[in-house]
C-alpha cells in the first residue's frame, strides 16, 4: 500500500480529538458561561431610548464576543503542543504514518471548530436578547401610541426594528471569528518554540495589545519620518510580527449602524485568511525539524 502524503481522514481524526480535548476542559465552560451571562444580562438594562439601548447592547455583546473568542483562541491553543510533548502523547501519534503538518493542521482545525461553536452559541444568545428586547419595545410603543394614526405607528415600529437588526451584524461577527483564527494560528506558531505555555500566553497578550495600538503608533511614526523604503520594510516586518488587530474591529461601525462596504469586508476577510495561513506555515517550518 502506498502511503498517502495527505489524508483528510487523519486530519479529521486529529481535529475531532483536539476538539474533544478542549471541550472536556473545564476552563472552556467557565469562559463560555461568563460570556453568555454578560450578553444575556443586557436584557435587564436600564431604560434608555431604544436607539441608545440597542447601541449599548450591541457594543457590550460584540465586545464580549470579540474578547472571549480571542482569549479562548490564545488560551486553548497555547497548551496544545506543550502538553502533548510533556506527556509524550506526541510520540504515539507521530509514530503512526502521520506527517507533521497534518498533526499541526489537526490541532489548529480543532481550535477553529471550538471557536466556531462558541461563537455560534454566543451569536444565538445575542440575537435572542436583541429579538426579545425588540418585541418588548415594540409592544410598548404600540401601547404608548394609541392616539396616533396607523401609518405613524407602523413607522415607529419600523424604525425600531431597523435599529435593532441591521445588515452589518453578520460581517461583524465573521470578522470577530477571523481575528480569533489569526490569533490561534499565531499562538500555535509561538508555541512551537516557546519554552512554556505561560510564556506563549504572555507573548500573545503582549502582541494583542500592540496589535490594537499599532495603527495609531504607525500614523504617528509616519508623520515624524518620511516613508522611504527602509521605513516601509520596517513597517511590513512590524505588521507581520504584530498583526494590525484594529483592522478587525468593526464594532464601532456596527454600533453606529453604518453599513460596512462589501469591499472593506472582503479585504478584511482576505487579510485574516492570509495572516492565518502565513502563521500556520511558520509553525510548520519550526515544527518540521523539531526534536521531540
Amino acid at each position: 500500500m502506498k502511503h498517502r502524503a495527505f489524508s483528510p481522514v487523519r486530519i479529521a481524526a486529529l481535529t475531532g480529538n483536539t476538539f474533544t480535548e478542549l471541550v472536556r476542559l473545564k476552563v472552556f465552560y467557565f469562559l463560555l458561561i461568563f460570556a453568555l451571562l454578560l450578553i444575556g444580562s443586557s436584557i435587564f438594562m436600564a431604560q434608555l431610548s431604544f436607539q441608545q439601548e440597542f447601541q449599548v447592547l450591541k457594543d457590550v455583546s460584540l465586545g464580549a464576543m470579540s474578547i472571549f473568542t480571542s482569549l479562548l483562541a490564545i488560551v486553548a491553543t497555547a497548551q496544545l503542543l506543550p502538553r502533548d510533548m510533556e506527556e509524550r502523547t506526541i510520540y504515539t501519534i507521530l509514530a503512526k504514518p502521520v506527517p507533521r503538518y497534518e498533526y499541526l493542521a489537526g490541532k489548529l482545525a480543532g481550535v477553529l471548530l471550538l471557536l466556531l461553536v462558541s461563537l455560534l452559541a454566543m451569536t444565538a444568545v445575542f440575537l435572542a436578547v436583541l429579538f426579545v428586547r425588540q418585541e418588548m419595545l415594540a409592544s410598548e410603543t404600540l401601547r404608548q401610541t394609541t392616539g396616533l394614526r396607523p401609518e405613524q405607528v407602523q413607522e415607529a415600529v419600523r424604525a425600531l426594528k431597523a435599529s435593532a437588526f441591521s445588515a452589518n451584524l453578520l460581517p461583524g461577527i465573521v470578522v470577530v471569528y477571523l481575528k480569533a483564527a489569526l490569533l490561534a494560528s499565531l499562538t500555535l506558531f509561538i508555541s512551537t518554540f516557546a519554552t512554556s505555555n505561560i510564556f506563549t500566553i504572555f507573548v500573545m497578550v503582549f502582541i494583542y495589545f500592540i496589535g490594537h495600538l499599532q495603527a495609531t503608533a504607525r500614523e504617528y511614526w509616519l508623520q515624524e519620518n518620511s516613508a522611504g523604503w527602509i521605513a516601509k520594510t520596517f513597517l511590513a516586518l512590524v505588521a507581520l510580527a504584530f498583526p494590525d488587530l484594529q483592522l478587525f474591529n468593526l464594532v464601532d461601525d456596527i454600533v453606529a449602524g453604518t453599513t460596512i462596504p462589501n469591499g472593506l469586508f472582503a479585504q478584511t476577510a482576505l487579510l485574516g485568511c492570509v495572516y492565518t495561513s502565513v502563521y500556520f506555515f511558520f509553525a510548520w517550518v519550526v515544527f518540521y525539524g523539531k526534536e521531540l
Binding site: 500500500m1 502506498k2 502511503h3 502524503a5 509524550r88 510520540y91 504515539t92 509514530a95 503512526k96 504514518p97 502521520v98 506527517p99
Partner: peptide
C-alpha cells in the same frame, strides 16, 4: 513518513 505504515510503537511509560 511512509516508513511508519508497517510499524507499531509502544514508547516507554506511555
Amino acid at each position: 513518513v511512509g516508513s511508519r505504515e508497517a510499524v507499531g510503537f509502544l514508547p516507554e511509560n506511555p
